[in-house]
Design a protein around this nucleic acid. Sequence first.
DNA 1: CCAAAATTTAAACAATTGTTTAATTTTTTC
DNA 2: GAAAAAATTAAACAATTGTTTAAATTTTGG
Lengths: 206, 206
Amino acid sequence: MKRDQSTEEKIKAAAKKVFMTKGFDGCSVRDIAKEVGSNVALLNYYFRSKEKLFELIFEGAMSDFLQSMIAVFSSDLTLKEKVEQLIDKEFSFFMEHPELPMFILQSLHQNKTNAPMPSQFLEPIANTGIFEQFEQAKANGEIRDVSIRNVTMLLMSNVHYPFMSKNLTKQFHGISTEIFEEDLKKHKEIVKELITNYLFKSNPKA
Amino acid sequence: MKRDQSTEEKIKAAAKKVFMTKGFDGCSVRDIAKEVGSNVALLNYYFRSKEKLFELIFEGAMSDFLQSMIAVFSSDLTLKEKVEQLIDKEFSFFMEHPELPMFILQSLHQNKTNAPMPSQFLEPIANTGIFEQFEQAKANGEIRDVSIRNVTMLLMSNVHYPFMSKNLTKQFHGISTEIFEEDLKKHKEIVKELITNYLFKSNPKA
DNA sequence: CCAAAATTTAAACAATTGTTTAATTTTTTC
DNA sequence: GAAAAAATTAAACAATTGTTTAAATTTTGG
């Protein structure tokens, strides 16, 4: 029955590449077909419509997007170590997938995906016990009395934004890609220091 | 010769609204014409093409985007006061124009505007003398030895991103718009403390 | 090897795209 | 108030859009 397992995968890979760079509205199904080296009918043969194909790609991207957190959160580390590791891991992940944050935020911004974020994505994070560990540390006086939502906003801002703003930043300062990437590395170190300094009290016994 | 000065402005206002919410690729010229309450030929009568109209809107948006900085930078304040004021002003500005950061970054990301950022935008900022003031403070030992590019990245990340990530954040935490906006206010205060604490040494005489 | 099933293709579909044309209405100018 | 200019409209243009149809090819199962 199945002839070539890889055809479906080739289409998904092409769709991912095209959707990521041009966005849902910015490309046609023929762009994707050309990337596959095939024609448009084949896309609808495997994935009923452009929308369905997009939803599939988006969900895969969202999964990747959140996956990098889960490994860190479910490890057996102190909260401080987890925060530091998270920043490191997220940066090296997005260094490999720099278009991901823009793709995710842009798609959600324009409601290209109507469905609310499935619990399939959120539950694994909750299951790591990170929220409990956070509240525990707060009760212990180990960290500041700040909501986890605000810490999340702080982390996401500083980890996602730099990758989204590459063109703006390069033009703003008139710098090359090389300089920009050096700035990125430095930014990571600054953010790590900044956030841990802010969150973790210098004297845990006070 | 001129009949109704406001027609051109009405089209620009409609185009701004539609482009901002749907993006260049996400809308048709007929969407804009409908918003105007007119037809498509009128758009090309005033602005030769969809692209030309977009460029105009984009440049206006970029101008607004950067304008809020200039007022603060050209004031007669200490660097620390400027940083604090900048964060305050930017937040209240984007509270009024929450779609602006996403529109700018998204347009630049997909190269919807080929032109490099015109010096028309950058020069006014340079002319405020903010760069000199920054280097001076660094030489004085008033602030850390960190590049202004990294400080910019820090500021932009924390000021722009929250407005871009509204949908992601709301879905991620399962919160209402009201809660989200409370978090925004808190975030602003955190960022202010965080960045000034980081940048300005606690003991300037040391 | 042969029929059936699955895969791939080319072509066509109606709808929508940005743009232009030409006619009509409104405003301006003298 | 009449001629000229400017503004607005409806209609049409070719090109592109997502999707479907039906035929052709390849693979599978007996």
